[in-house]
């Protein structure tokens, strides 16, 4: 049985359809990425799956329980953490853990074992008496994730958990997500950071309430990016970009730091393009030092997909 099974889930607010007839499933123990622009319907979907928002039509089972008729059981079996920091700033770390432990019915030895675990994963052992408000954002988020799974749920929903967190802390946070997943917890995560999406086992892309693509990061890149992308290192980058754009030889040309990325047209070969670049640039007395084929990123995939939509 899958952890989450969504069937024709729809949510309307008045005339606005936020989530439009969405169906998918999430396998047990995987890290499932749910991606989309702001207002695409990510949070609405998560809220419905957590049993705090009633769907207009359709249904889903989370951990085997229907979100429509068994929302109380759903709540007992999931953890939830949102981008908005949801611990109490005016309580100490320990008091926050005790509170959420109590909310999920943990007592006595059970609670103190889980408390130790949360402190360990948040790297806060020995700092129990600190006020939560005084912690840096990254550590707060790890503590929030720890308390969100204090009752060892089978499934945890993370709604943009790394918003406003620095890159190193983000990496630490993802280590934590991987740990949870390896222990058998299903992780359902939304994010804006496409480099983070690479860590997911599977990804679903949602736009305007509809699913537009899905699969593993590798599958997405293979299925949606058929063209070759070249990275060019040369002198006078800005002039070179104008020349290459004007040549109409490429699908697109963009600046990436000190380099230029060009996307070839569908039937072009790599060799053909390389020759063209060197020749064209040298005509304008621009020296080309390097041309490499690069593998597309998820960002390339999403921009391609969203452009196709428009």
């Amino acid at each position: 049985m899958n952890s989450i099974e969504v069937k024709n889930l729809t949510k309307k607010f008045g005339n606005f359809t936020s989530v439009d007839n969405v169906s998918f499933e999430v396998y047990r123990g995987e890290i499932f990425g749910f991606l989309g622009a702001n207002g695409a319907g990510k949070s609405t979907t998560i809220k419905m799956l957590c049993g705090i928002l009633e769907p207009t039509s359709g249904d889903a089972t989370v951990g085997g329980f229907s979100i429509k008729t068994q929302s109380e059981q759903v709540k007992r079996n999931i953890g939830y953490m949102s981008q908005k920091f949801s611990l109490y700033n005016d309580l100490t770390i320990e008091e926050n853990i005790n509170f959420f432990g109590g909310v999920y019915g943990l007592e006595g030895e059970n609670l103190s074992n889980r408390k130790k675990w949360v402190l360990k994963i948040a790297n806060l052992e020995g700092k129990e008496k600190l006020l939560t408000g005084s912690l840096p954002t990254g550590i707060k988020q790890r503590l929030a994730l720890g308390t969100a799974v204090i009752h060892s749920p089978n499934i945890v929903f993370l709604d943009e958990p790394t918003g406003g967190v620095d890159p190193i802390e983000r990496r630490n946070f993802w280590d934590l997500i991987n740990t949870l997943s390896s222990e058998g917890t299903t992780v359902f995560v939304t994010t804006h950071y496409l480099d983070e999406a690479e860590f997911c086992n599977r990804i679903l892309l949602i736009n305007a309430g509809k699913i537009i693509a899905g699969g593993s990061p590798k599958e997405l890149k293979e299925n949606y990016i058929k063209t070759i992308i070249l990275e060019i290192e040369c002198g006078k980058t800005i002039d070179a970009l104008t020349i290459l754009e004007d040549s109409n030889f490429f699908g697109s040309a963009t600046i990436f730091g000190n380099y230029i990325h060009v996307k070839l047209k569908e039937n072009d070969t790599e060799e053909n393009a390389k020759d063209f670049i060197v020749k064209t640039l040298s005509e304008s007395k621009i020296n080309t030092s390097r041309i490499d084929k690069i593998s597309p990123t998820l960002e390339d995939v999403f921009i391609t997909l969203l452009e196709k939509k428009d």
Partner: peptide, 8 residues
């Protein structure tokens, strides 16, 4: 929000 998603 955190309390709403809990069994409280």
């Amino acid at each position: 929000e955190q309390i709403n998603v809990s069994p409280v």
